[in-house]
């Protein structure tokens, strides 16, 4: 999935996959913090964002 998104022109750091069991709460917190930090670092996404429809 990541590969095609990247191929289409999406920043690879915006997508992250992780396997977390429902029991692994600390891992979940850690992963979410890591991802939010990464995404904040690259700034808001300008792509794949739908604004007001560009139609007639």
């Amino acid at each position: 999935m990541k590969n095609l998104l990247v191929t289409m022109g999406i920043d690879p750091d915006r997508l992250h996959f992780s396997w977390i069991s429902s029991a692994e709460s600390t891992k979940f917190v850690k992963v979410v913090n890591e991802i939010t930090a990464k995404v904040k670092a690259i700034g808001p996404n300008q792509r794949f964002v739908k604004k007001e429809a560009k139609v007639a």
Binding site: M8, F48, V49, K50, A53, K54, V55
Partner: peptide
């Protein structure tokens, strides 16, 4: 969305 909006098409 069902329009011709490029984001929906993509």
């Amino acid at each position: 969305g069902k329009s011709q909006d490029p984001m929906d098409v993509r």
